[in-house]
Design a binder for these strands. Structure first.
Lengths: 188, 188
DNA sequence: GCTCCTAGCTTGAGGTTTCAACCATATCCC
DNA sequence: GGGATATGGTTGAAACCTCAAGCTAGGAGC
């Protein structure tokens, strides 16, 4: 089968995207690393936890949420635990699963880091785009994401059972109400 | 100064982009790694060399072309040299600069890797987008890239002198002699 | 020539990610 | 009950990237 090469426009688009997104991500990484000593991936983990009911998720849920491998999460959370930002605990009934919860320090970290990070995202991305382009960006990558998730679907099996209210004893944390708008960039 | 948070739409766009692009890049990386034992970044290096006149570039030119740090390039090319895909050689007159050139094996590698890679880019990206979206994608990231290159300009002082016409960064349109299309995804 | 400074690149250490292997607990099914 | 299998996580090694430091060669100024 003969390869369908990219035409000239596609090439240009592809390369702009590849380098643009790479540099953008690197810039964000550097900002967080410099200002908070935190890689972007780690910030996302803290952020994801900060949004979870009870600021707690199982490792699997966390992995799904930040779209990372189990291994990556395990290493990362180990590191975050050393840093005192996260604490791990065995699940009561199912002793295989471990729960990761944000410590007070962890919460403070997210709260401290969020404004600078959001500013960076604004400066480097949204402030440079028209609102329509922002929309388009979202549309395009929701499509891409859809395709990729399909590919993964056989691999991941998203637990139908919802690990009920996690730990059951969630102290006042059950603000399950936070629906649709799960923003990862603003701590709660 | 009070932080300008992202509104709901921006959040959604931002997260779709962040995860979509991340997963996309990881998917491409895996494809190349699996089929050719080559990380995407390394493929880009080989690809850049394959387009250069004489299949040769100085380390600095290479760094500009693939938008990577000198250090990264140095490590990477060292690795590629071990693998026999690239050869390094001191410059005759200016003994500081070293030139990296693709070996025959290196050429063969790019030729072998290109079709699968391009297929992947098509399958995962362009085939899922309308032509207009493809255009938009390019536009958006040319803009982003413009901003980032400006930021970098003071930091990296990529010597103003334009190191000979070598296939540098033309996203901005500076298409030079070698037949227009400047694709990084098709070996020559 | 000598000194100081810059350019070009390399090196080493430290941190993150990946891959494959592994452990422990649950679950299925006879 | 008990073995096979699946699930949830962890671990260690190897690979890659980043950062800071260093090293050599070219240039500028005197």
């Amino acid at each position: 089968m003969t390869t369908r090469w990219l035409d000239e426009d596609e090439q240009r688009s592809w390369r702009a995207f590849m380098w643009g997104s790479r540099l953008l991500m690197e810039a964000l990484d550097r900002q967080l690393q410099r200002d908070e000593g935190l890689p972007h991936a780690y910030y996302m983990i803290l952020s994801a936890l900060s949004e979870a009911p009870g600021r707690t998720l199982t490792m699997s849920e966390l992995a799904q949420t930040v779209r990372g491998s189990a291994s990556r999460l395990s290493h990362a959370v180990a590191r975050l635990e050393e840093a005192g930002l996260v604490r791990r605990e065995r699940h009561r009934s199912d002793k295989r699963t471990t729960m990761a919860m944000l410590t007070e320090e962890g919460v403070a970290k997210v709260v401290a880091a969020a404004p600078g990070h959001v500013e960076a995202v604004r400066n480097l991305l949204f402030d440079r785009l028209t609102p329509e382009q922002g929309e388009q960006l979202g549309l395009i990558f929701r499509t891409v994401l859809g395709g990729l998730d399909d590919l993964d679907a056989p691999a991941r099996r998203w637990s139908g059972e919802r690990v009920a209210a996690v730990g059951g004893d969630d102290l006042a944390g059950g603000e399950q109400g936070h629906e649709g708008t799960d923003d990862h960039d603003r701590p709660r």
